[in-house]
Write a protein that binds this DNA or RNA. Structure first.
Lengths: 186, 186
DNA sequence: GCCTATCTTGAATGAATGTTCAAGATAGAT
DNA sequence: ATCTATCTTGAACATTCATTCAAGATAGGC
């Protein structure tokens, strides 16, 4: 995971991967068949880690909106932490290989879409608690509204991650995140 | 340019580049010294193209806000056009190689920052024409406000570009862009 | 028509890459 | 202690890649 996040898929050599795993080529090929198989496994692990972290984060006693704000803040911190990557493995792989590997693209897209739906659920929860003052109809239209909010929210996160490359300062990123959260909860 | 946009830097082979340019390795190395030199030249050309297109776009008779909206809409269309890339060369290269090539990172960052400042100028123009109803102080604080708006705007564009990979439909992207423009001109 | 300076050609080179496989190590069962 | 099934090892392989360079083509000046 870390190897792929650091160098990207193409620039990560098998030698890098034997060093990172402590295993030798034969073992890796026996277990994962491919360099690509290793990437798929890394993505699976990444997704699993993220998923449990997501569950943990949103299982507390705070209001959904407080949790979403803290979630966003944690991403800001992740963006400026110099440790491995500063980029989400899913979006990094998507940017690098999307047009060349349809299966990989759909795997990553599925994962990101599930994540987006998890966020939509949080907005929905906030809405049923009356914490969201959006104008809206009822029933199905309310559902679509939360979808739209979630889409906008994750678009902002994608943007933050790219933006962090050009302005890697807590000050700028935090103010962008604050603005995003305001716009999404207005 | 197109070759690098399609495959990314690492996956673009010299053979791809000889085909794309119609020149042979010797000539390419004579003129650009390196594969990296070729990428730098492609980035320079890309930036130059974008820059003149930017000037052209914002030199019309419409209000700055109308121009910004149309600019955003044109990016949405670019995102769903299947032709070459669907990703800006600058951000693509930044995502792929930022952490491994400091000089390249600073070149790209400079270009993107100049672009961001060009957008900030449009917001400033809109503001002096009284088209922006933001609360703000005067003088320097007004300037910083336009900077912040521009940063938020380009963050949104970065986000749109990544988002386009997972939801490549005009409908979704356009509504996100509309929302972004509303939030930025509120 | 010849000469010179610049540009082009494309086969050759060496390094690095992803991948394979036969030999060796290991551990659990009898 | 022996056997067997699984896992590990790392040298070897074929391929691909970026890069080089000497030979050839070209065009402009005299």
């Amino acid at each position: 995971m870390l190897a792929f996040m650091n160098k990207g898929y193409a620039k990560t050599s098998m030698q890098d991967l034997t060093q990172a795993t402590g295993l030798h080529p034969g073992s890796l090929y026996c277990a994962f068949t491919n360099k690509r198989g290793l990437l798929l496994a890394a993505i699976g692990q990444y997704q699993s880690d993220r998923s449990t972290e997501f569950e943990r984060h949103f299982s507390g006693q705070q209001t959904p909106l407080e949790q979403l704000k803290k979630y966003l803040d944690s991403i800001v911190l992740e963006c400026i932490s110099c440790e491995a990557s500063k980029a989400c493995l899913l979006t990094k792989a998507l940017n690098e290989m999307a047009e060349q590997d349809d299966e990989l693209q759909s795997i990553i897209t599925d994962n990101l879409t599930r994540w987006e739906q998890g966020i939509a659920q949080q907005f929905a929860k906030a809405k049923t608690q009356g914490l969201l003052h959006r104008q809206s109809g009822s029933g199905k239209s309310a559902e679509r509204d939360c979808q739209a909010l979630a889409r906008y929210f994750v678009m902002g996160i994608y943007g933050l991650r790219t933006f962090a490359h050009t302005h890697p300062t807590l000050e700028v990123l935090q103010s962008l995140a604050d603005q995003l959260f305001e716009d999404v909860t207005r």
